[in-house]
């Protein structure tokens, strides 16, 4: 469903990604694991069309989207949850949910969102950034589910959150997977990654150095933790 071919990206002269090739299938959860500065965020920004200094190509459902502007990629079905959660302070919780246009039949209704995330329903009129960090992360994920995005790009959704909330996010990811949504999950939390993902890519200095299925990943967990310097 989402295919990335030979993606290289630069900041000025400095190369941040080197010929990355990876794919995410429908109903598949794939993680991208790597240290700080490995190039994970750069990769999703390339996928969203926000970073343009690149070579290689990005395909969604067999269609080359490499040259599309960001808003058309979102409408084609990419749902981005950025690393700072990207909640609008000038919009209420409900407005944050309603801002992005629906992109497919599988879009959630507001009722579904509030059923799944009662805290958001209670605070629907509150300013987006008055929510706690965990609630903001829920809001960010709920926002892309409400559009009916078919591929989620989650940039470190568990970062800085309490274990209970991380478990909740894992639950949402599994629900999304069951409904056929593909998920590219960026994570440094190896234990969390192992509980939700089918496959894993390891990114080091902009290069994909390993591609593992979840069993191999669990087996080599200690080695990977060491690699990540955690």
């Amino acid at each position: 469903m989402l295919e990335i071919e030979n993606l290289s990206a630069w900041y000025g002269e400095a190369q941040a990604l080197r010929e990355a090739t990876l794919s995410v299938g429908a109903g598949e959860v794939v993680t991208l694991v790597g240290r700080n500065g490995a190039g994970k965020t750069t990769l999703v920004r390339c996928l969203m069309g926000l970073h343009r200094h690149l070579t290689g190509s990005v395909w969604l459902d067999g269609r080359d989207i490499t040259s599309l502007p960001a808003h058309r990629r979102a409408r084609a079905g990419l749902g981005w949850v950025q690393d700072d959660r990207g909640i609008f302070a000038n919009l209420s919780v409900e407005e944050n949910l309603l801002l992005p246009p629906r992109v497919s039949e599988s879009a959630w209704t507001l009722e579904q969102v509030y059923d799944a995330f009662p805290a958001l329903g209670i605070r629907r009129r509150a300013g987006g950034t008055t929510l706690s960090g965990g609630e903001q992360q829920m809001l960010a994920v709920a926002r892309v589910l409400r559009t009916g995005a078919r591929v989620l790009l989650l940039d470190e959704p568990s970062e800085g959150l309490a274990p209970v909330i991380v478990a909740q996010i894992g639950e949402i990811v599994r629900t999304a997977k069951q409904s056929g949504i593909g998920v590219l999950l960026i994570e440094q939390n190896v234990r969390f990654a192992a509980t939700v993902a089918d496959r894993h890519y390891l990114l080091a200095q902009g290069r994909l150095v390993e591609s593992l299925d979840n069993d191999e990943f669990v087996e080599r967990q200690d080695e990977l933790l060491e690699h990540l310097g955690i």
């Binding site: 808003h71 979102a74 409408r75 950025q82 990207g86 609008f88 000038n90 801002l99 926002r143």
Partner: peptide, 24 residues
């Protein structure tokens, strides 16, 4: 209104509004 919501979002974070499907 929806227009106002879009203007507020685009004012605050144009790049993010775009990545959420708004043609800023």
């Amino acid at each position: 209104t929806r227009v106002g919501m879009i203007v507020r979002a685009a004012t605050e974070r144009p790049e993010l509004a775009g990545a959420l499907g708004i043609n800023v």
